[in-house]
Design a protein around this nucleic acid. Structure first.
Length: 499
DNA sequence: TTAGGGTTAG
């Protein structure tokens, strides 16, 4: 040995290691000269193992350390974060606190990110409080992390409070807010946020534009959409697959499928998400044939359809009553993918709307962990086939589970009653919906009731009264809807005939 | 006080 490396010389040595053998050699050297006792460089050794994906060796080093400074903890926590083990991140974070080690900005940042992955707002807020106590209240990394946690948990009002108090905001903070509003269904505020950012002299990059395309997708404002696209081109911002896919989605959601196709065709690099965006765009806009053609093209280009493209294809089959293709997509799903609730619900919907109610029921029975959406889909299926009694008995079965019937469940149920002219049941459950299940009636519930009473003649024992109340409510809610007008006038016509 | 840590698509 010609020299004894100092910790400062070991660091670049370790970071240069790209394979396990060379890390192990340096590791051995460290053991030999007793560097561990010094407590420095341990973090970088853990990070080196983690960087080559060897998290087990990293953890072994971590566990054997006689003393662990914040660097070692961070290296281990970051390693778990990169491997997407948010639960482990939080375990280590808690252990670190218990051992009295003071977290730094990186620790808080990664711990908050773990909470975001788990959508664990409560733990996240505890961590944020501690971060503020430790003097990281105005740290942009910690700050953008708490903003993102709030955004992903749908708490934009809380996010804006933190954001407005930040003395310094970088582009990531702004992006988090813009995307947060866009993804929370508040596109106008997303755009306002961007304008505010511009006023403060910040220039948007591609990631900011992705947030804006999501806002545009919800706003349906072609002029704004084109200006976002134009900005990307004018500023010569890098058009990666994420940016281009979000443009495809934006145009597709706005119903501008020609533009969506134009962007899509010119993409040098596509993936299943890009295909899914276009397929779902066609299906959502009622162009079932195009959606199904694209599904075939996608496979021809070597991409395996995933959940989203298959759900869109099922929707397309449903629209045109293409039972045969729907059935073969169902077969494909069973063979190749996990049959989850979303797919299950789409398949139920497809079978029932294509006229195969008993197959829909078979699929429903096969879903292991049904959520209320699955139940609602099946209740709706019975409803549109005029099987009100079956809809009711399924609803009663649902009430025996730990799922709570929601506004959508009652829409399905009341609509089933109206399709089957089950007046007594309709009124009885409408009342119980309000009194027992505490679901406030909305437009769709009133529409079902008016429809039900109109179909049934609505003349007996005070039913007229309920019908009238419902009819007035419906008109109050949406006086511009001609469909509702004809429903209500139909109701009055029949009511008059009866009385 | 090396670098690490936070934001984006169907």
């Amino acid at each position: 040995m010609h020299f004894i490396p100092s910790p400062n010389r070991l660091r670049p040595l370790l970071l240069a290691c790209k394979d396990k053998a060379s890390i192990s050699k340096t590791h051995a050297l460290m053991l030999l000269i007793g560097l561990f006792k010094l407590g420095s460089s341990n973090g970088v050794l853990i990070a080196s193992y983690a960087n080559i994906g060897d998290i087990k060796s990293a953890r072994k080093v971590f566990d054997l350390l006689p003393q662990r400074g914040v660097d070692a903890w961070n290296a281990m926590i970051i390693a778990y974060s990169r491997k997407e083990h948010p639960g482990e991140v939080l375990n280590l974070y808690r252990q670190m606190i218990l051992e009295g080690v003071r977290p730094d900005s990186s620790t808080f940042t990664v711990a908050l990110k773990a909470c975001t992955r788990l959508l664990d707002l409560k733990t996240g807020e505890e961590i944020w409080c501690r971060a503020m106590d430790c003097g990281f209240e105005f740290d942009v990394f910690v700050g953008s992390s708490i903003l993102n946690l709030y955004a992903k948990c749908g708490k934009m009002d809380e996010a804006i409070v933190v954001f407005d108090r930040m003395p310094r905001r970088d582009l990531v903070c702004w992006t988090t807010m813009i995307s947060g509003f866009a993804q929370s269904g508040r596109p106008i505020e997303a755009v306002d946020m961007y304008r505010r950012m511009q006023k403060e002299g910040m220039e948007g990059d591609g990631v900011v534009m992705v947030g804006l395309t999501q806002a545009c997708a919800n706003l349906g404002d072609l002029k704004l959409s084109l200006s976002v696209h134009g900005y990307l081109i004018r500023k010569d911002l890098p058009m990666d697959v994420v940016v281009q896919t979000s443009l495809v989605d934006m145009y597709a959601k706005n119903g501008h499928l020609k533009l969506a196709c134009h962007v899509f065709k010119n993409m040098p690099c596509k993936n299943v998400i890009s295909w899914g965006a276009l397929i779902s765009g066609f299906a959502q806009n009622g162009f079932a044939g195009n959606a199904l053609d694209l599904l075939v093209d996608m496979q021809g280009c070597g991409y395996r359809p995933d959940l989203v493209s298959l759900v869109s294809a099922l929707l397309a089959c449903t629209q045109i009553g293409f039972l045969k293709l729907g059935k073969s997509i169902h077969g494909y799903i069973v063979r190749r993918l996990d049959f989850d609730r979303v797919l299950g619900t789409a398949v139920i919907d497809m079978y029932s709307k294509c006229g195969a109610l008993s197959w829909a029921r078979t699929v429903f029975d096969q879903i292991n962990s049904k959520d209320s959406i699955s139940w609602n889909a099946m209740i709706t299926s019975y409803g549109i086939h005029g099987h009100g009694k079956e809809a009711l008995s399924l609803f009663l079965e649902m009430t025996k589970t730990n799922l709570k019937p929601d506004h959508a469940t009652f829409s399905s149920l009341l609509s089933a009653f109206s399709h089957s002219s089950l007046v007594e049941e309709g009124q009885y459950w409408f009342d119980r919906m309000v009194s027992e299940y505490k679901v406030p009636p909305t437009e769709k519930h009133y529409v079902c009731m008016v429809d039900l009473l109109a179909r049934a003649g609505c003349c007996k024992n005070g039913k007229l009264l309920i019908g009238e109340i419902a009819a007035k409510k419906v008109l109050e809610l949406d006086p511009d809807d001609l469909g509702i007008y004809s429903l209500v006038s139909n109701y009055y016509a029949k009511a008059r005939k009866c009385s």
